[in-house]
Design a protein around this nucleic acid. Structure first.
Length: 298
DNA sequence: GCGTCCAGGTCTACC
DNA sequence: GGTAGACCTGGACGC
């Protein structure tokens, strides 16, 4: 095993722990949180056949990447790893405007204090979309099972129990029967296969979506063209693409909102939408942070 | 251990 | 455009 150490400079308003608990992604393979929240492990594919285990930790204002790979990484491949981690950690996203808005409201002032709101992404848009489809219509424990099966049965073993996330081509080459039986994805299997096949054959282009200048509605409609991505999944994916105009209300948000704001009384989605309307294009992020405040208590 | 019921979001057919 | 029903799984529950 070859080991390389790389360093990234974190942007202002960045806190490692806030990123880890930004949402559930750090709980899904190939992510692994280690050493009492001090290290995040994941896999980065630098080419279709070359994968690296990346151990990420915070060192003051720097981010240290300890990278293990079976063959040494050249300079170009090291840059791919750095760029990939920067994209996962949202280094290019500015939250200044969001923080200004939060500072004006007493109950939101805690957010800029913990540098919150930066939501962890997977190494690729493909991985994010597959995982989001796996969150639909099931418990979080089932989501973890499906993603775990996909990664450990179809990914490449790198080191220390870490597997790369499978490529579109690898997923597309499976049969629906195998997917249903071996990944517990059930009726989602044909959705995952169709999506992977469209990406693998370049009928659908998605990796540019993190940098493409598109309006929220254009992005939303693009995502909805993927079978298995409905209103909730598209809204959540938009957050991972830097657009926060959608609340993407699901059963958990309904229950949490009811508990926090309505003393447990049942509420309609329209009531929840109305509650956050005046936060404009940041309403989706304000809602999410409001719902997950307790996750950030130390 | 086994059977039954339920929750969860999306798609499709139908009105 | 709105709505009902099917999809499939793990987990909770009762026996």
């Amino acid at each position: 095993m070859n080991r390389t150490t790389l360093t990234l400079t974190s942007p202002k308003n960045f806190k490692f722990r806030s990123l880890l608990y930004s949402h559930g992604w750090s709980d899904l393979e190939p992510f692994k949180v280690r050493d009492d929240d001090k290290e995040l492990r994941t896999a980065v594919s630098v080419s279709p056949t070359k994968h690296a285990l990346v151990m990420i930790s915070e060192r003051g204002s720097k981010i240290r990447l300890t990278v293990d790979s079976k063959a040494p990484l050249n300079k170009c491949e090291q840059e791919i790893v750095k760029k990939s981690v920067g994209s996962m950690f949202r280094f290019n996203d500015s939250l200044d405007e969001f923080y200004s808005l939060c500072r004006k409201e007493k109950h939101l002032q805690w957010i800029p204090k913990i540098d919150g709101g930066r939501m962890l992404r997977s190494a690729t848009v493909f991985e994010d979309i597959v995982k989001m489809i796996c969150t639909t219509n099931c418990s979080w424990s089932l989501t973890k099972i499906i993603v775990n099966h996909l990664t450990t049965k179809l990914g490449t073993h790198i080191s220390d129990g870490v597997y790369s996330f499978p490529s579109p081509k690898t997923i597309a080459s499976q049969t629906e029967r195998w997917m249903r039986k071996e990944t517990s994805s059930g009726y989602r299997a044909p959705y995952l296969l169709e999506f992977a096949e469209r990406v693998a054959t370049k009928k659908l282009s998605i990796e540019h979506l993190r940098t493409e200048k598109m309006t929220t509605d254009e992005l939303y409609n693009y995502l909805r063209s993927i079978k298995g991505v409905g209103h909730y999944a598209a809204g959540n994916l938009l957050k991972l693409l830097g657009h926060y105009d959608y609340l993407s209300v699901d059963s958990w948000i309904r229950a949490k909102f009811s508990e926090i704001h309505k003393n447990g009384r049942k509420v309609s989605d329209a009531t929840i939408e109305k509650h956050y309307t005046h936060y404009g294009k940041w309403r989706g992020l304000v809602c999410w942070m409001d719902m997950t405040k307790e996750w950030h208590k130390t």
